[in-house]
Simulated assay, not measured.
Amino acid sequence: MSVRPPSNLGNASVSEVLFDALGHEILAEKASALGRAGERAATCLARLRAHDGADGQRPATDSRRRELLKDAAEAVYAFFIQRELCGLRRHDAVIRELGIPREVLARLGAK
């Protein structure tokens, strides 16, 4: 849905209503994008965990694991960027909730 104000807008109250509708639509899209990014990050992290298995064995030469690690890092990075665009600057709670491994965070430049 797109909202375009009329060209002969003379009434301030109408423009405020249109602005609120547009602002509401923008916020809804931000929230939707944040949800999609979070789902993608959770999915990539789950794939990485499933590949590692219950015992957590990680062969150093496993190319599939390197690919999954790269995908997880990219998804988490995109999720963090989307969170910051929504004004959410602290990621500590999300890191704990999703159980993001240090190995993934290290690829993002975190220590």
Rank of each mutant, 00 (worst) to 15 (best):
R49L: 10
R49T: 03
L48Q: 00
E67R: 10
V104D: 06
L98E: 03
V104P: 00
D92G: 04
S32Q: 11
N8R: 14
A41I: 01
A42K: 04
A110W: 15
C44D: 01
L27W: 12
E29D: 08
L108M: 05
A106E: 15
I100C: 00
K70V: 08
L45H: 07
K70H: 15
E16D: 15
F80M: 05
R90I: 08
G109W: 01
S7Q: 10
E25S: 08
H91T: 02
G10C: 15
E67D: 07
A75G: 02
A41C: 05
V3A: 09
A31I: 10
G53W: 02
A28P: 12
R89K: 15
Y77R: 14
L85S: 06
Q82G: 03
D20L: 14
I81W: 12
V3R: 15
S7V: 04
A41W: 06
H91A: 09
K30C: 01
P101E: 11
R102N: 15
L88E: 15
D20S: 13
H24L: 04
Y77P: 02
N8P: 06
L18S: 01
A42S: 14
I95H: 02
V17C: 13
H51G: 00
V76Q: 03
R65F: 04
A110P: 02
S13D: 14
Q57F: 12
A42H: 11
A75L: 02
S7K: 06
A42R: 09
A31F: 04
E74V: 10
A28Q: 15
E103V: 13
R4K: 10
L108H: 02
K111H: 14
N11I: 14
V76R: 03
I95L: 05
P101D: 03
V94H: 01
E103N: 05
C86N: 15
A106S: 06
V14R: 08
Q82F: 05
L98W: 02
R47Q: 11
L88M: 14
R65G: 05
G53M: 07
A54Q: 13
L18A: 04
G109M: 01
L18G: 07
S32I: 05
D71F: 03
L88A: 06
S63Y: 05
E67H: 12
L22P: 09
L69H: 01
V17N: 07
E103A: 09
L34R: 10
D55A: 06
R64P: 00
A60H: 07
E103I: 06
